[in-house]
């Protein structure tokens, strides 16, 4: 099951600089990054190729970081692509807590990445509906 790294961050300059410096030193590649903000502080989420290693490296320098399980589903990169997935999730009563997406270069496909309460259940629902769930390796090395 893929994971992303969640980092606690005060809202101030230099924060991303410190994070990315560590990742560069450890030769960790970032697939995607999002920042959600709540005024004084926020959460930075990093989709990276070596999440466990990155999380440890960040903790070592005193950053509050943790691993979160995610669902990554492959969708078509065309109008209505995301809607196909979201309608299933809605029908099954699955609440998306936090999400983002990105396209896979020149493939006509995209990835929708999100956090939910029950990852395994959600993955099964989507597989049953014919969607492709990306594994760790597939997701980290797209």
């Amino acid at each position: 099951m893929p994971q992303q790294v969640s980092v606690f961050a005060e809202n101030r300059p230099g924060k991303i600089d410190r994070l990315t410096e560590v990742l560069e030193q450890k030769s960790i590649n970032i697939r995607a990054i999002t920042i959600s903000d709540s005024g004084d502080y926020g959460i930075i989420k990093l989709l990276i190729d070596k999440p466990a290693e990155a999380c440890e490296a960040l903790k070592e320098i005193g950053i509050a970081a943790t691993l979160k399980d995610i669902v990554a589903v492959k969708i078509a990169d065309k109008p209505g692509g995301l809607h196909k997935v979201s309608s299933i999730l809605a029908r099954k009563g699955i609440n998306v807590e936090d999400a983002y997406g990105f396209t896979i270069r020149e493939s006509g496909q995209a990835v929708f990445v999100f956090q939910v309460e029950n990852v395994q259940k959600t993955e099964k629902i989507l597989v049953d509906e014919g969607f492709t769930i990306l594994s760790n390796q597939e997701l980290y090395y797209i």
Binding site: S38, I43, G62, I63, A64, T66, L67, K68, E97, D98
Partner: peptide, 15 residues
Amino acid sequence: ELYNKMFEGDIKALD
């Protein structure tokens, strides 16, 4: 200061 080991990774928990 937040205690490193108790960080759960989402805004909801922080709030």
